[in-house]
């Protein structure tokens, strides 16, 4: 039985900023937890919240890996669209600072940056989990097989959240989650609905949030997405939390709240 820590890096007090000190304090706490024997460290990814969180869990996970010795490091839900965009930029050659030979690390395992010798092309690493497997098959790369720890989840789960609305997405509707490696690919998988349902992925939600933040227009689409999210998770959670207390159950998110600068509870 393992016990771990799920860390969202949320700022509880405004005095916890600036960010470098905030995240540095978490790194120190994680290092102490690793010394005391915690089994895992879980990180989450959030955007557009004023009270902190963590925008790039993979970068922070790398920092955690340099300061811990035994705890496994994992992530919660990550934005597939954002990661795919980063990968596309790397692949385009526009910015390749980490792929220059002189910048490569000299450690034992360089799997993310190089091919595995002695392994056929079709078995070359495409993801972390398959890299570990390919590594284990390669006698010439045996050092990597000794690199702990192995992935907790194999294969790595990729889930895309798709919001379905019975009336075209304007009112927010039931939310379903689909296993999809890429959000755009989820669209053809959706069943046809008599009412003309519409699917939207995270890309649209993020774009709408950016437009709203830039003050271009209050986004009804973002409101619908957030409302659906709140119905399926947020409101239920907060309502349960406020049960038995004098705290009121928060209302659903609507465009007027957004225009007032309040996006609701996350």
């Amino acid at each position: 039985m393992r016990i771990g820590l799920y860390l969202d890096m949320r700022i509880l007090r405004s005095g916890d900023a600036p960010w470098a000190r905030h995240y540095g304090r978490w790194i120190e706490l994680i290092e102490e937890a690793d010394r005391l024997g915690t089994d895992s460290i879980w990180l989450s990814e959030h955007h557009f919240f004023e009270d902190g969180y963590l925008a790039h869990p993979l970068v922070f996970a790398a920092a955690v890996a340099t300061r811990t010795k035994r705890a496994r490091i994992g992530t919660a839900v990550m934005f597939a669209g954002v990661e795919a965009g980063r990968a596309a930029r790397r692949g385009s050659g526009a910015r390749r600072p980490y792929q220059r030979r002189s910048a490569r690390p000299r450690g034992r395992c360089r799997l993310p940056l190089t091919r595995v010798r002695g392994v056929r092309r079709r078995h070359q690493p495409a993801a972390t989990s398959s890299s570990k497997r390919a590594c284990g098959r390669s006698a010439s790369f045996g050092a990597c097989a000794r690199s702990p720890p192995a992935p907790v989840q194999d294969p790595l789960p990729w889930w895309g959240r798709v919001l379905l609305s019975p009336r075209g997405g304007a009112d927010g509707g039931p939310s379903r989650e689909w296993p999809a490696a890429a959000i755009p690919r989820a669209r053809p998988l959706l069943p046809r609905r008599p009412g003309g349902g519409r699917a939207s992925g995270l890309r649209g939600t993020v774009r709408a949030a950016l437009e709203h933040r830039a003050g271009r227009r209050p986004s009804s689409r973002l409101a619908a997405d957030l409302r659906a999210y709140s119905r399926t998770r947020g409101i239920r959670t907060v309502a349960t939390w406020s049960k038995g207390t004098d705290r009121p159950v928060p209302p659903p998110v609507d465009p007027s709240m957004m225009r007032a600068g309040r996006l609701g509870d996350g």
Binding site: M1, R2, I3, G4, L5, Y6, L7, D8, M9, R10, L12, R13, R25, W26, L29, E32, A33, L36, G37, T38, D39, S40, W42, D51, W241, D265, G266
Partner: peptide
Amino acid sequence: EETSSGAASRACPRNVSISSKRHVELLC
């Protein structure tokens, strides 16, 4: 198989959040 303790939530006092070192000590 595994359980993890959440760090904090909105309006969560610091002494009951994982950001407290004592909390980590109790867990571990």
